[in-house]
Design a protein around this nucleic acid. Structure first.
Lengths: 185, 185
DNA sequence: ACCTGAACACCGTTCAAGT
DNA sequence: ACCTGAACACCGTTCAAGT
C-alpha cells in the first residue's frame, strides 16, 4: 500500500536522474513498473502528487543523513554537505525542490532542523526565522545553480565545494556577530 | 522580424502570469496572436527557445531598471528591489529564471552588474566572483521562494520586503568586513 | 482489492503546401 | 517571405469494466 507508493516514487526519481525531469510521465513510470499508467492513480492521485512525492522523498533522504552531533558550526556544515550530496545524487530530480511550491511536511522538518541549530547556537529567538530563511535559500539555491548550470562550468569539473565552504564560513561569522550583538545589548 | 519575436515572447509571459506557466503552449501563444502555432517556429525554433526568450526578456527588464547612482550599498539595495519588483510583476513567469539552466547573455550582464558594484565597493578582485554568486543566489532565490510559496503565508499578506532588507543589511556588513580584512592584510 | 483498455482533450514538432 | 493544415508520436486523466 504505502510500500507501492514508495516504489513508484523511486522509479520516477530514477527516470528523472537518468533521462531528465521532462522524461517523467505517468506512462513512463508505469512502464518501468510493468504496469499500465492508470495503476499509479490509486497511490498518487495526480502527476502533481507524484512530483510532490519525489520532493518529499528527497528531503527525507536529506534529513536521514542529518547531523545530530558536534558544535553548531559543524552541524550547519553537515547540513550543507548533505544538501550538496543530495543534489549530486539527483541531478535530474533535485531542482524540483526549488521549483515546486512545497511548504510540505518534510520541508518544515528541514526548516525546524536549521532553526534548532541556530537556537542552540544562541541566536535570539526573534531572529531565528529570518536567518533560517536566509540560510535555507542559500543552501538550496546554491546547490540548484550548481546542478542546473546557472554558474557555468566554473572550477575544474564543476567542484564548487570549497567555494561554498567559504560562503558558509562567512555566514557563520555573520551569525556569530548577531549573537555577540544581542549579548552586548 | 525581431519585432515579431518580441511580441511572441510578450504574449507567452502574459499567459504565464495570468494562467500559470503550464498554460504556456505553442498552441496557446499562437491563438493569442491570431496565428497558427506553427507561425511561431520561424521566430523561436522550439518551446525551449521560447522559454529561454522569456527569461532573457525578464532579465532585460530587470537590467533596464538598473541603478547607476548612489553609493555601493544603495546600488545593491536597488538591484535587490528591482529583482523583487520583477518577481511580483511576473509571478507566473519569474520562476523560469531559477528553473532554467541559463548562463545566458542577459544573466551574465546581471552578474557583471553585481560584480562591478562589489569591485567599486573595494572588495578584493579575487573574492568578487564568489561573493557575486553568493549574492545572486540569495537575491534570485529569495524572490523565488516568496513567489512560489516555499516560505508559506508568512507576514500579513506576504510582504517580505522588510525581512529581506534586514538580510541584505547583514550581507552588506559581511562585505564591509571582507573589505576591512583585506585592507588590514 | 487491484488493475486495464479505450477514449478525450490536449501537447511539441515535421513536412508539404499554399499565397 | 510568411503562414497553414494535416499528421505523428506523445501527454494527463476519466470512466466503465475486468479479475
Amino acid at each position: 500500500m504505502d510500500e507501492k507508493q514508495r516504489v513508484i516514487i523511486d522509479q520516477a526519481i530514477a527516470i528523472a536522474d537518468e533521462s531528465g525531469i521532462e522524461a517523467v510521465s505517468m506512462r513512463a513510470v508505469g512502464q518501468r513498473l510493468g504496469l499500465s499508467p492508470m495503476a499509479i492513480y490509486p497511490y498518487l492521485r495526480s502527476k502533481g502528487a507524484l512530483l510532490d512525492g519525489m520532493v518529499e522523498r528527497m528531503l527525507g533522504e536529506l534529513l536521514a543523513a542529518a547531523p545530530g552531533t558536534g558544535d553548531w558550526q559543524d552541524r550547519l556544515r553537515a547540513v550543507s554537505a548533505a544538501v550538496r550530496t543530495l543534489a549530486r545524487r539527483h541531478p535530474g530530480a533535485y531542482p524540483l525542490i526549488v521549483a515546486r511550491p512545497g511548504a510540505t511536511a518534510e520541508s518544515r522538518r528541514l526548516d525546524d532542523l536549521i532553526s534548532e541549530i541556530l537556537l542552540a547556537a544562541g541566536v535570539p529567538a526573534a531572529e531565528v526565522p529570518r536567518l533560517e530563511r536566509l540560510l535555507s535559500t542559500l543552501l538550496l539555491g546554491f546547490a540548484n545553480s550548481e546542478v542546473n548550470g546557472r554558474f557555468g562550468a566554473g572550477p575544474p569539473d564543476g567542484d564548487w565545494d570549497s567555494e561554498f565552504a567559504a560562503d558558509l564560513d562567512d555566514e557563520i561569522r555573520l551569525i556569530e556577530q548577531i549573537i555577540a550583538r544581542s549579548g552586548a545589548a
